[in-house]
């Protein structure tokens, strides 16, 4: 898949997804398709609804309208057991949200054992493998309060990967980090993207979008304004709103 437009099956399909808070329309009819192996980066101004959209995909935010299909199943159907689908969608948060009462290893093991019912020994092996992949194997006994922000986020990535999900959702994974720690996290994410993992990334890191994304999605005012290959979006956007946004953000 390395960097090409993915040609796998459709993994996630969003149809007319809406999220209204009273009169405020955070999402106003979003349609999107994520194929297996796709690396899609969602960009857009603050308040454009990009994080809300990402959080709707695993129903951390419940859409007020529309449908979300994961592996062909409509997960917005109240009869569907969302927990089964959430296991297959790893999520990385802006604020890391590591479990403060557990060690680095414990963070990566607890979901495997309690949700996937894996043997604890096997779960530890799997967790250690992913912690190695993010360069945190040397900290397995540390508590979250003992490590830096960048390290926390790498552990959070390993925690999500340990569940061996079908797709990973990244919700502004570097926005809460000190500038010198952004690079280490992006490097890990780049590696994941090249490994063929399906990824959906909400970020303000335009360089990451340009270098790593198969597809860049530009959102504004709760809708997808434009999407396409990064070179098209960044060099030749068709929409005025995209141009204005890029001009403002690239001037910074």
């Amino acid at each position: 898949m390395n960097g090409n437009i993915a040609s796998g099956d459709v993994l996630i399909r969003a149809v007319g997804v809406e999220k209204h808070y009273g009169k405020i329309r955070a999402l106003d009819g979003v349609d999107a398709e994520i194929r297996k192996g796709d690396v899609a980066v969602i960009v857009g101004p603050s308040g454009s609804g990009k994080s809300t959209f990402l959080r709707c995909l695993n129903l951390l935010e419940e859409p007020t309208g529309g449908h979300i299909y994961f592996e062909g199943v409509d997960i917005t159907d109240p009869g569907v057991d969302i927990n089964v689908h959430r296991q297959k969608m790893g999520m990385v948060f802006q604020q890391f949200n590591l479990f403060n009462n557990l060690t680095v290893l414990g963070n990566c093991v607890v979901g495997q054992v309690k949700v996937l019912k894996r043997d604890p020994q096997k779960a530890r092996e799997i967790a250690t493998r992913y912690l190695e992949q993010v360069g945190m194997a040397g900290y397995i006994n540390a508590k979250p309060s003992q490590i830096s922000g960048g390290q926390k986020q790498r552990v959070a990535i390993a925690r999500a990967l340990s569940m061996e999900p079908e797709a990973m959702l990244f919700d502004e994974p570097t926005s809460a980090l000190d500038p010198e720690m952004v690079g280490e996290v992006l490097k890990v994410m780049k590696g994941l993207a090249h490994s063929g993992l399906t990824m959906l990334v909400v970020t303000h890191e335009m360089a990451f979008a340009r270098d790593v994304a198969d597809r860049v999605v530009f959102m504004d005012d709760g809708v997808i304004v434009e999407e396409g290959k990064p070179e098209v979006i960044f060099n030749n956007p068709t929409q005025e709103r995209t141009r204005v946004f890029l001009k403002r953000i690239l001037e910074e």
């Binding site: 927990n83 949200n97 479990f99």
Partner: peptide
């Protein structure tokens, strides 16, 4: 949220 995102009920 982190718990729920891992599939915990």
């Amino acid at each position: 949220e982190a718990g729920r995102s891992l599939g915990f009920n």
